[in-house]
Design a protein around this nucleic acid. Structure first.
Lengths: 169, 169
DNA sequence: TTGCTCCTCACGTCACGTGAGGTGGC
DNA sequence: TTGCTCCTCACGTCACGTGAGGTGGC
């Protein structure tokens, strides 16, 4: 308040720019709006959506929860709702809010956080043992290739191999 | 051949047993058959599907690629096709197969393996930084709770928290 | 005969993809 | 005026979920 800082940067980003930066389609952004997951800060007079930096951060968070945690959009909505409440709380604390309400919000945040941490831990374990499995197989393949006197077209080629496996659309 | 070992165990498992053990629906198994991903070894006279231990292992592999790697079913089909060819090769090597064919199959297997290893590595990195983020937040929440003199209903409670976050359906 | 599990359609759902046909600002 | 990006329907797709209605072996 009166610090000379404008809290909200003007929303200037168009849907196409946001989509490309995040690596999703514009259809995805319209769909998230339809679900109430991500509402662009405001629209241009002509009807075009305009996204703020805060919106972009929220989108990044959504995609992180979707891709890293594998949550469906309903669960993501619930988690973001919790985080929104926590952000509100931070504002309200300055004005003074009831101890009960503070407790509820913090307990909910800690509960979600604990749940996600255990899930990430489990996923890390699974991925780690999967990697070990892959490395064992790799050693076996290379030994077999040696036995058959086969050479590969370029060393370990991890980048080209990733492309060949099809991650790069 | 003639070692006294029966290579294929008799397929005795019904679709419901396989589904429950793997944690998927029977619909999923029928769908995978429709796609040619997993064909039960044989059917009972009445029309019921019967799965062998080999089929179950293949299903586990499919689900691993689906859940751990996040691949779609088309890509999984291609990877399993490659692994099938590699298994064939192991048989054919005894009978003698052309060096060209061996090379093709091994190179393909190594290519897929390299691609998956780099992808798993990337996923591990992302998950690890996500975990760090979560732990930072957890520390902050607990500090805030301490400041507000709030106590939680049972220590760290990681199991109950995971349930509350909704992983346990 | 009674349960139990199985079967095949076939429509529904979630998270978008993909045009069709049209409008708005540089 | 010409591109460019944007808009709203609206049907299509992938990976199943979910009954409807019926059959088969202990």
């Amino acid at each position: 308040m009166g610090t000379g800082m404008t809290d909200d940067a003007e929303p200037r980003l168009r849907i196409g720019e946001v989509a490309e930066q995040a690596g999703v389609s514009t259809r995805t952004l319209r769909y998230y709006q339809e679900l109430g997951l991500l509402n662009p800060a405001r629209s241009s007079p002509g009807g075009g959506r305009r996204y703020s930096a805060r919106d972009v951060a929220r989108l990044d968070r959504i995609l992180e929860l979707r891709d890293v945690m594998g949550f469906d959009l309903d669960r993501i909505k619930a988690i973001l709702h919790g985080e929104d409440r926590l952000a509100e709380l931070r504002q309200e604390v300055l004005a003074g809010v009831s101890r009960e309400r503070r407790k509820d919000v913090i307990v909910e945040a800690v509960t979600i956080n604990n749940g996600m941490r255990t899930q990430v831990g489990e996923r890390l374990e699974v991925l780690h043992s999967f990697l070990t499995e892959l490395e064992t197989k790799a050693a076996y393949y290379h030994q077999t290739a040696r036995d058959l006197n086969i050479k590969f077209p370029g060393g370990a080629l991890p980048a080209r191999a990733a492309a060949a496996a099809g991650l790069t659309t």
